[in-house]
Design a protein around this nucleic acid. Structure first.
Lengths: 343, 343
DNA sequence: CTGTTAGCGCGTTCAA
DNA sequence: TTGAACGCGCTAACAG
């Protein structure tokens, strides 16, 4: 592990050091013969270019900064698929991923950009009013948001179309002849943090319920671990067996506990009431019972975000990207919505 | 965002550039007066040192490489707590984390070290025979493994003490008067991959069952989504209501599905049979029903791994670390083990 | 098509 | 206690 330099490669290949560099970057034509000799020399020495030297001279790091918020209650549909997709997408573009937590706030952003730790930043878990957004907008590197703040300050945003998701769920329930929509809300911590999708879902559901002429109730907060209490509140509204209650659960972490609580009370979703969850298809399928869901696939969102990011790094590389890029959700019917009455 | 350099700081502070550097590293005494002026200048310019230049000149990156294996079936007790703990521990030492996936195999390791992308590497999800381990051992940077391969090749390893965990579970079941131990195995994919803990758990459970004079059966593979079939195999052994079957479920992802399958068959853990899971306390508590578990806390393991890593980076910073550092598990009784018969 | 050369911004030695 | 000067390994402009 002697760590060879491009000078060593040049010596072995019998060329100048800059030629080695040009073989790597492809920024000028090289005869096939020299190219081969250089590549052979690299292979022979198992040469790897020094990332720091490269960043210094070339003013690009080939690193993407990823800012995530750990800790529960963030929902996030599970953070892991996002991280995974972003990492593999970065590698597909010959970039690496530097992980930074949201704990650092905007200081983390300043560090990433100021120290030239990365060429671009992707930031998740955006709040409606997020102090980091204006900071991000002033950075020397492009930033893509996963989530849509009240004011994106010119930054590109990618997210699931939560408005459409809520609308689809309400439509599905309305179409199946329900006479009341109940939305199970988020934990107080999420509400307080003003996570951007919380408001978007609730507002959109309300609006669409009005369009469909259905009363809509929100039960909130629904705390982690306290889902049974929320179910009791829900069932208090279900006084008459002929009532058709359609429940929308936008907080994916709450769905399974809610299903458990319903089962304990011998209320069968799909027979007694209806339930639509907002979650990945995987979660919906593997649940017991599998529930009808509107999917927000982290992988789609992440992939689009990375496409936007690499486009910002090289606008000539593809077509212009929308400033706000909302991924269309999809509704999959499973077992938890009651059949439409035949009357 | 003009991006100032240490030369700018020097100019503003009226000192030489090297003085600025020494203020930052503290590697030589600086008069309080100049120190202040330099720090003020830094503040005023919101100076951030260029990471690449630093890495080049100082031959240290202040970055930790983290190699993880995404994708299901890896168990992993949930990858996220590991990543979270490692990241925050790195930050506590003024380091950042570069994320690399196991897909790249040992090429990823060579890249991390060869390109001087990081000062040290922490590698998770080690297989019993892991091609990356010998490569890691030959790298120019220290590597810490989370997991214990058959041959650590001199690398430091940190992990939960799976042998002890299995032993404790068997002891608990034996002590509660069971007359047969059944271990629910792992999915075939985990077995084939030879994940290091799979063999360790099964071997240790077998040994301890022999010590306690109990027959032990392994039901395997237990595929994701096929847990019900595994439960049927289990119940086929339960022909007599007076039999006391003690089930150990080392694969944490399988526990909840197994509990669901038992419930569907009206078999109540803690009354009809006993079940002990190997999982975090959090999962065990929040399950329905909460199950007796032997805990492997990712945070403890990660923290110890990072302590070892930073000790390797600076051996003078603390006491010597064990080459193989096993974190002791803890058994917590909840609802799923039958009371000891009083007779 | 290729070689020569000047930095990139910082850590560190040598000299004071 | 401080400054001047060198070089880390690479990219890219300039010269041929």
């Amino acid at each position: 592990m002697a760590a060879f330099t491009s000078k060593d490669v040049a010596r072995v290949a019998g060329v100048s050091q800059s030629t080695v560099s040009y073989v790597m970057t492809g920024k000028r034509p090289i005869s096939e013969r020299t190219r081969r000799r250089v590549l052979d020399a690299m292979e022979q020495l198992t040469y790897e270019p020094h990332a720091g030297a490269r960043a210094l001279a070339g003013r690009r790091t080939r690193v993407v900064g990823l800012v995530v918020r750990f800790g529960i209650g963030g929902d996030t549909f599970g953070l892991l698929p996002f991280i995974e997709t972003i990492t593999s997408s970065a590698r597909a573009h010959d970039h690496d991923v530097l992980l930074v937590t949201a704990d650092e706030g905007s200081a983390g952003l300043r560090r990433l950009a100021g120290r030239a730790l990365c060429d671009a930043i992707i930031m998740m878990d955006i709040e409606e009013q997020d102090e980091r957004v204006p900071v991000a907008a002033g950075l020397s590197v492009p930033v893509v948001l996963i989530g849509v703040p009240a004011d994106p300050a010119g930054l590109h945003c990618v997210d699931l179309d939560f408005e459409a998701a809520a609308r689809m769920a309400v439509d599905e329930l309305a179409g199946a002849g329900h006479d009341e929509i109940v939305v199970m809300g988020y934990p107080a911590s999420s509400m307080e943090r003003g996570l951007n999708f919380v408001g978007r879902v609730l507002r959109s559901a309300r609006r669409q319920a009005r369009v469909r002429g259905l009363p809509l109730t929100v039960i909130e907060p629904v705390e982690r671990g306290q889902e049974a209490a929320a179910v009791d509140q829900l069932l208090a509204r279900w006084t008459n067996k002929h009532q058709r209650l359609g429940v929308l659960v936008p907080h994916s972490d709450a769905i399974v506990p809610l299903l458990n609580a319903l089962r304990k009370r011998d209320v069968v979703p799909g027979r007694d009431i209806s339930l639509i969850g907002l979650s990945t298809d995987r979660e919906a399928e593997q649940s017991d019972p599998p529930y009808t869901n509107v999917s927000g696939e982290p992988r789609d969102v992440s992939r689009r975000a990375m496409e936007t990011l690499f486009w910002l790094l090289d606008p000539s590389s593809g077509v212009e990207r929308p400033a706000i890029d909302l991924v269309a959700p999809r509704l999959t019917r499973r077992t938890t919505v009651m059949p439409t009455p035949s009357n």
